[in-house]
Amino acid sequence: MYLIHAHLEPPPGMGIPEDTDVRVCALGRPEERVRHGSLHADARPHPVLGLFVAAPSLAAAESVAREVCERAISLDPALHGVRLLRCEAPLVTPYYEGLIAPPARE
């Protein structure tokens, strides 16, 4: 299972629907195996939709997430005008680097 972040840009002067996660997941097909979504509407500079996708590889998960998001944007009137800026796994390197960093000396 992979967490894929879809970075969304709402139309100028508009927000993103609070139920975008539900709307997008509802348009996933069973074979695409989108398991869950979580919207971070207040993320900056643009809202981020986290999608959990069961896929055989990261590339496949990113592709599925992109396809499902594009489908939702094109079919759901509430998402009209929303732009998908990018769809990728989030970078977690800083978190893990913090785990292996030597303890601070006082």
Rank of each mutant, 00 (worst) to 15 (best):
M1S: 14
Y2W: 15
L3K: 05
L3V: 13
I4K: 06
A6F: 04
A6K: 02
H7G: 00
H7E: 10
L8F: 07
P10F: 08
P11E: 09
P11M: 07
G13P: 11
G13R: 15
M14S: 13
G15I: 01
G15L: 08
P17D: 09
E18T: 11
D19Y: 08
D19R: 15
T20F: 08
T20S: 12
T20Q: 06
T20L: 10
D21V: 08
V22W: 07
R23S: 06
R23E: 02
R23F: 01
V24I: 11
V24S: 02
L27C: 02
L27Q: 14
G28V: 00
G28W: 03
G28C: 06
E31F: 14
V34I: 15
R35F: 01
R35A: 06
R35G: 00
G37F: 06
H40R: 13
D42A: 15
D42T: 14
P47A: 04
L49D: 09
L49Y: 08
L51Y: 10
L51W: 06
F52T: 03
F52N: 01
V53Y: 00
V53A: 01
V53N: 00
S57V: 09
L58F: 01
A59D: 05
A60G: 00
A65Y: 02
A65W: 02
R66K: 09
A72T: 06
A72N: 05
I73Y: 01
L75P: 00
D76F: 00
D76H: 06
P77W: 04
L79Q: 07
H80D: 11
H80K: 12
H80Y: 03
R83C: 03
L84H: 12
R86K: 13
C87D: 06
C87M: 05
E88C: 09
A89G: 02
P90A: 10
V92Q: 05
V92W: 02
T93N: 04
T93Y: 02
E97Q: 15
E97V: 11
L99I: 12
P102Q: 09
P102C: 10
P102S: 12
P103C: 05
E106L: 08
E106S: 11
E106I: 00
